[in-house]
Nucleic acid binder design. Structure first.
Lengths: 192, 192
DNA sequence: ATCTAATCTTTCGATGGCTAAAGATTTTAA
DNA sequence: TTAAAATCTTTAGCCATCGAAAGATTAGAT
C-alpha cells in the first residue's frame, strides 16, 4: 500500500477505488479538484469574515448592503425582482428585508395594481447609507486587484466565469439519485 | 453625470467616488472587480445548492461530509485541528459535530493527557459512510473539469489560489485597529 | 505552591441561506 | 360566474457560519 499520509482526503479516498492503469492521470485531476475545493473554501470564508467585519464597523453585512444597493439601482422594485438581481431566494430576501425595515432603511409598499406584490423602496436614511457605504468587497482587495497586470485580472475573471459556468451546468444536469448506503463510485464516472 | 442605469451597483457606487481623470482606467478595473463579485456569488450559491441537494439525497451536507473526511484522513484528531484542516471556525465544527455525533457517525473522546482537548473519531458506521460517500463537489462538475485541457485546469486553480491569497491578505490589512495581533492567525499558518 | 496567562472546547446570540408549505390575489377556463 | 391554476410573498423549520464570552484545564512564573 502506498503511503497516503500527506495526500488530501479526496485523493486518498478516491485512490482506493481506482485501478492502477488510469491512476496517474486521475491523480493529477483529483489533486487539482481537491485544491479547487480548498481554495473555494478559503475564498468563501474570506468573504464571510469580511461580511462580519463590515457589519461590526458599518452596521451592515454584505448581503444587506447588496440588497440596499440593488433597490437603489432598480428603484421601486418588487421583492422577487430584487431576489433575482442579487441571486438569492425570495425567502432569504424577505428575512433580510425584515431587518432592514426594522432599522428604517427600507420601506415595503403593497402594490395597488396587483396586491400580491410588495415593492421595496429606500427611506431617506437608507438612501444616505447606500451613498456612503463601503464596497461589499474590501477596499484593500480592490486596491490589490488593481495592481495586478491586466492579463492576470483577465485570467482570474475568466477562470471564475468558467468555474461558475461549470458548476451551474453541473447543478442543472446532476442526477440526484444518490443514497449514502449504496453509492459505489465517485469522481470517475457519473453519467447524467 | 454619466448615465449609470445599466451599470452594476459596485461600479455605480465606486464611480461616484472617483475623479474624472483616472476614470477610464478605473472603469476597467471596476468592471472586472464587479464581475469577479458576480461570479463569486454564483459559485458560492452553486455550492450551497449542491450541498442542499446532497443532503436531501444522501443525508449529509457538504460541510458534514467534509468534516467526516477530514477525521478519516487525520485519524484521531482534536476539534481544533479539524477546524484548521477544513478551514472553518471551531464553533462551526462543534455544531456540525453535534449533529454527526447525534447520528452516531462520530464519537467524541476527551483526551486523557490533556483534558482540555476533545478527540473526534469515526464510528464504524461513520467509517462506512465516508467510504461510500459521494464527492463534496458534484460529480458532474468533476467530470466536466476533468475534460478541460490541462492548461485550463491549471489556470483555474492558480487563479483561485491567487484570489484566495488576495482576499486573505486584504482581510488582514483591513484589520480594524482593535486587535492587530489577533486577526492573522487563521491564514498565515494553515499547514497542519 | 499558587496565581496568572495561555489553550482548548462549548455555549450564546446573530445572520444568512434554502425548501416546502401556507396565505393572499389575480388570471384563466369551463 | 365560479372554480381551478398560476403568481407572488411570507412563514416555518432546518443547517452553516461567525465572534465573543464562558468554562475547564494546563503551563509558566514568581
Amino acid at each position: 500500500m502506498v503511503s497516503l499520509e500527506d495526500e488530501p482526503f479526496v485523493m486518498r479516498y478516491n485512490l482506493a477505488l481506482m485501478g492502477d492503469s488510469t491512476q496517474l492521470v486521475k491523480d493529477q485531476t483529483m489533486k487539482r479538484v481537491d485544491e479547487v475545493l480548498v481554495s473555494l473554501r478559503r475564498i468563501i470564508r474570506a468573504t464571510d469574515i469580511h461580511s462580519k467585519k463590515l457589519s461590526k464597523h458599518s452596521g451592515l453585512t454584505s448581503p444587506q448592503l447588496l440588497i440596499l444597493m440593488a433597490i437603489d439601482k432598480l428603484g421601486d422594485v418588487t421583492i422577487g425582482t430584487v431576489a433575482k438581481d442579487v441571486n438569492l431566494s425570495q425567502a432569504t430576501v424577505t428575512t433580510i428585508l425584515d431587518r432592514l425595515e426594522k432599522r428604517g432603511l427600507v420601506q415595503r409598499v403593497r402594490s395597488e395594481v396587483d396586491r400580491r406584490r410588495v415593492h421595496a423602496k429606500l427611506t431617506d436614511e437608507g438612501q444616505k447609507i447606500v451613498e456612503d457605504a463601503p464596497s461589499p468587497l474590501q477596499e484593500s482587495f480592490v486596491e490589490k486587484f488593481d495592481t495586478l497586470p491586466e492579463w492576470e485580472q483577465t485570467m482570474i475573471l475568466s477562470s471564475l466565469q468558467k468555474l461558475a459556468e461549470l458548476m451551474q451546468a453541473s447543478d442543472i444536469d446532476a442526477a440526484p439519485v444518490l443514497h449514502v448506503g449504496d453509492v459505489t463510485h465517485h469522481y470517475t464516472n457519473s453519467q447524467n
